[in-house]
Computed example of a mutant assay.
Amino acid sequence: MSSLPLQLVQIIINTTHLEKSCKFLEEFITNITNVLPETVHTTKLYGTTTFKDARHAAEEEIYTNLNQKIDQFLQLADYDWMAMEPGSKASDYLVDLIGFLRSTFAVFTHLPGKVAQTACMSACKHLSTSLMQLLLEAEVRQLTLGALQQFNLDVEECEQFARSGPVPGFQGDTLQLAFIDLRQLLDLFIQWDWSTYLADYGQPTCKYLRVNPTTALVLLEKMRDTSRKNNVFAQFRKNERDKQKLIDTVAKQLRGLINSHHS
């Protein structure tokens, strides 16, 4: 792990200690000098604010640094978007990334609880958003169900990390919710559960409430052109024409949802 997070953690610990110490220093000066309380107040604000500002700056740098490290790992992602079958485990780059996050947050136990929680949630949200962008980026013009299943293994690894409680203080599945958009999108496609999605769309209890129809259509279009070449939907035991017709029908309904939403 880079030494920078460790340095930032130490800065936060030190400035927090100094900030608390200001109170005792100011009381000591008041007692020995008999300075009026309103005069001390000016010094108190300056001293406390200085250390507080330094601490906040270090906290923000931690969040930024973590996101940058996540981006570095994601640059190592090398998905075979045309894979016929998924691998047997999560991608190596993702396993290494989760290992880095675990070791980092183990150090964060020395930080104030809120700082550690914010850093962890920020990292998980950034990872989730980046994975979604990776899946939907324009350069990925085609993908197979096998590729999507491999991607799902990686998201499951992220969810397991969130469930493991990398930092204390989160209530229930709060941290897992950082990956809810990915989870619902992947479940919809892997289970091919369009009848449920289309029937319940717009209802607050919808199973796929977090799946935007525009996002779903983008992903569906990527799978459309691979269905004939790679027999993507073989598990449905339909001929190629029926499978293509099914995709076209779903795509048309998704466009209808999008148009009705914007009208």
Rank of each mutant, 00 (worst) to 15 (best):
M1E: 07
L6D: 12
L6H: 10
I11R: 10
I13E: 14
N14D: 14
C22W: 09
L25A: 09
N31Q: 10
I32V: 15
V35P: 00
V35S: 07
E38W: 01
H41K: 13
T42Y: 11
K52I: 01
Q75V: 09
A77N: 06
A83V: 07
A90G: 14
D92R: 12
D96H: 09
L101H: 05
F105P: 11
V107N: 14
V107A: 12
V107D: 13
H110G: 03
A116F: 06
T118D: 13
A119N: 10
M121A: 04
S122V: 00
T129L: 03
L135E: 01
L136E: 13
L136S: 10
L136Y: 05
R141A: 12
G146D: 08
V155A: 04
E156S: 10
E157P: 00
F161C: 09
R163Q: 13
S164Y: 02
G165Y: 06
F179P: 02
L182G: 05
Q184M: 12
Q184K: 02
L185H: 02
I190P: 00
D193L: 02
W194R: 03
S195I: 06
L198G: 05
G202M: 03
P204G: 01
Y208S: 08
L209C: 02
N212I: 03
N212C: 11
L220E: 08
E221D: 14
R224N: 06
S227A: 15
V232G: 00
F236N: 03
K238I: 03
R241Y: 14
K243D: 14
L246F: 10
L246C: 04
Q253G: 00
L254K: 00
N259W: 06
H261W: 04
S263V: 08
S263P: 00
